[in-house]
């Protein structure tokens, strides 16, 4: 202790804490032992020390065990759900491939049966209708339009968590996709798929939460719209159209990224969900007229707005020439002698 006042004497608490962290008791005990003629330090191998060491280790272990954040039940459930979703998605994809293969087989058998039955050759008609119904994959020139959320939009970090606000303006919405897809149909696209999902005449583009759903299958960004058709013509028609202006507006105002590219060989898959819903007799009973009187039912299908609403039933292939029921359509316009036009305003 110096007799002079230390300048920081008023801060004794801090100075003792900072400068003398060691318990003063050690020094005092050592001084006492030295005064008594013993060595200053005691052994570290006394029972007391060992017992206390065991106690310390025990304390550390127990504290670590009981305070470590345990995986919450919600996280476990989420992980479990993710696993199940992934497994089921894989299962679904496998089944789709199987359906496609079996469908091809069925079509082959149908063609064979038609040939063998000796009826009129409907193969080309069926092919045509299948193309227009979106049941088979198509390849040809076309446009690829890639849409993505604005770069500033928060993506990924909180994916899966509940959205805090309802709408983020940098996001591509189902409405955007509807308008653009309709614009592409209007520009003369013959077949459209989004992220590998074929848009048939019954396909709907909708939303659930913030996810865009096409044909009841959720899509993830980026959204790749493939439209088959005359590349040049489509582009010329699309750009000045309402949809094209809308798209450029999206890009300018909301920084939504879009890339439009033409290509000579694009493929859109078939709509695996297509199934036979309505069957019509092909004109009058077999044999009395030629194939010229076949159905026109599919022709308007691609022009219909595939996105706005799920209107209309699937214009499926006609495969039962012997079916004589003429009242199969809702509108009742079909008569055995006239080309039927199948529209189902539901």
């Amino acid at each position: 202790m110096s007799t002079e006042r230390r300048p920081d004497e008023s801060m004794t608490l801090l100075t003792t804490m900072m400068e003398r962290p060691l318990d003063a008791g050690y020094q005092e005990a050592a001084d006492r032992r030295i005064a008594a003629g013993l060595p200053g330090a005691t052994s570290t191998r006394t029972v007391l020390v060992v017992v206390l060491a065991i106690l310390t280790g025990f304390l550390f272990a127990v504290a670590a065990q009981s305070l470590r954040p345990k995986p919450t039940a919600a996280a476990a459930v989420k992980k479990e759900l993710v696993t199940r979703i992934e497994a089921l998605q894989k299962h679904g994809t496998d089944q789709e491939a199987k359906v496609a293969a079996l469908g091809k087989q069925v079509r082959d058998y149908e063609a064979l049966a038609l040939q063998q039955s000796g009826g009129t050759d409907l193969t080309s008609t069926i092919k045509d209708l299948e193309v227009q119904a979106g049941a088979v994959p198509l390849t040809g020139p076309g446009l690829t339009l890639t849409l993505d959320d604005a770069a500033s939009t928060d993506t990924g970090a909180d994916a899966g968590s509940r959205p805090s606000s309802g709408f983020q303006e940098g996001r591509v919405t189902s409405g955007d996709l509807q308008i653009i897809v309709n614009g592409l149909w209007g520009a003369g696209a013959e077949a459209i798929s989004i992220n590998g999902h074929r848009l048939s005449s019954t396909a709907a583009i909708r939303f659930a939460g913030q996810a865009i759903i096409v044909d009841f299958r959720p899509l993830s960004r980026p959204y790749v719209i493939t439209a088959l058709g005359d590349t040049q013509g489509m582009q010329q028609l699309f750009d000045p159209s309402f949809a094209g202006l809308y798209l450029s507006q999206l890009t300018d105002e909301y920084k939504i990224r879009s890339i439009l590219a033409g290509s000579d060989s694009l493929t859109v898959p078939g709509d695996s969900a297509a199934r036979l819903e309505v069957a019509e007799p092909v004109g009058p009973p077999v044999g009395s007229t030629g194939p010229g009187a076949t159905l026109q039912q599919g022709t308007s299908a691609p022009k219909r707005s595939a996105g706005a609403a799920p209107t209309g039933t699937s214009t499926s292939t006609t495969r039962s020439p012997s079916d004589t029921s003429s009242g199969a359509t809702d509108s009742g316009t079909g008569s055995p002698a006239s080309p039927t036009s199948e529209e189902n305003p539901s």
Partner: peptide
């Protein structure tokens, strides 16, 4: 630190602990 300083004392250790 006390061990290294050469002033370790088991009783002080236990009591301080």
């Amino acid at each position: 630190r006390a061990i290294l300083d050469g002033i370790f004392n088991d009783k002080v250790f236990v009591v301080s602990f």
